[in-house]
Computed example of a mutant assay.
Amino acid sequence: MIIVTARLPGRSVFLAGEHIECKVTFTNVIKHRRDGTPTKSKSYTLAWASAQIHCQCSVSESRVGLPKTRQLTSSEVSTSGNDTSFIPCKGEKGSTVLSTKPSILFCDLVLVPGESQTFTYQELIPGDAPPTFRGNAVKYSYKITVGTQKFNCPTKLLRVPFRVLVVPGLNDITVYGECDELKPNNPFKRTQQKESSVLEVALEVLQTITCRKAAHTYNITNARGKVAKFCLFKQAYKIGDDIVGTCDFTEATIPCVQFSATLQSEEIVTEECRKKSKDTPMIIPYSNHDEVCLHTCKSHISIPIPLTATPGFSTDLVSLRWYLHFEFVISKHCLEPLKQPESPSESATWQGPSYLDVETMVWDLPIKVYATNPMYATSVSLLKTEVTHAL
């Protein structure tokens, strides 16, 4: 019996534009009886093995209508009746939106009993690839598919899933190269030209974008007056970061009883692909922060962005945007101010009213969410980096 094992060494999350490596091992396993003695085994000859990357896109048929000029879906490919050719997307849901050229791992491989051989598959993930995304209307998923065929047998497929993150502006990494005139120069050291990898450049770009701190202050008001002043220290974040901001009620003219801040993403299907033009964007809530703030001068929020979330992106089919959704519960009438004790040694007791006439005020603040270091995202990934299949 032949056992095929495909393994992604190191991690299961990659950036678009990176090279991905997969180790594929073929083993002729010797079976043993219950008493431990080996059974009679034979040599096997494998005709060929190939590997290929493909991205599958599946959509909600009630919300999304794909254009007429598109590729065949995987279900249509499966009915073609060809069992010996290498069709990586065979049996998959949806349609293939991206696929690399198939790479041949070997031809005519003979494995004697107990023998094992390992082959390395390397491929470049296209820089214009869409990110891995599991939305309500659209889903993008990536797999490395390894196809193998024994003589006079149908082709067997083995798939290894992985996740793709996209950093905008990495199609040409040479624009991020540092000018030689600006580099520190040591006259006693021989200079060596070193090309930066896509991962190194991407991490530098993300660090530059998300570390720019510039406090943005927003006055939250309605027709009756001022509710609060909100301060956000930056507007660009990486997945895994914490969104920290402060709420100042010292200059408020409308009493705020409590407020909540929720991190939300908005999945927007392009107008050309909507089945119903009146369909509203789909909102996905994440972590939130609740605070009771009556008679409070200042408060703050701290909301984490999950590492499993998808950074903002846009394709010809769907786009994803991020924002903070605030809900302020405000009183319709002015409340008596809290009485302060005359001296610090004295204390005061305040009894809240049994009834408050309140209303809810909603406010949305757009933010930018970018990718992060793939190693961090791998630490919380549930994708298997090793898959085994028997021929």
Rank of each mutant, 00 (worst) to 15 (best):
G10A: 05
H19M: 09
H19V: 15
T25P: 06
N28K: 05
I30H: 07
S41A: 07
S50G: 12
V59N: 00
V59S: 00
V64L: 02
T79Y: 11
F86T: 02
K93I: 11
G94A: 00
P102G: 05
E115W: 10
E115K: 14
Q117Y: 07
F119D: 05
D128Q: 14
A129W: 09
F133A: 06
R134D: 11
G135F: 01
N136I: 15
N136S: 10
T148C: 02
T148L: 02
N152H: 14
P154T: 07
L157Q: 07
V160R: 01
R163V: 08
V166F: 10
G169A: 09
L170H: 12
K183P: 03
P184M: 00
Q193I: 13
V201A: 01
E204R: 14
G225E: 06
F230E: 09
G240K: 05
D241L: 01
D242S: 12
V244Q: 03
G245W: 00
T270N: 14
E271W: 15
K275V: 09
K278T: 15
D279A: 04
D279G: 03
P281H: 02
L294M: 06
I305E: 02
T310S: 04
V318P: 01
Y323P: 09
L324P: 00
V329N: 11
C334T: 15
L335Q: 06
E336G: 08
P344T: 05
E359C: 09
M361F: 15
W363G: 11
D364T: 06
I367C: 09
T372C: 07
N373L: 07
M375D: 13
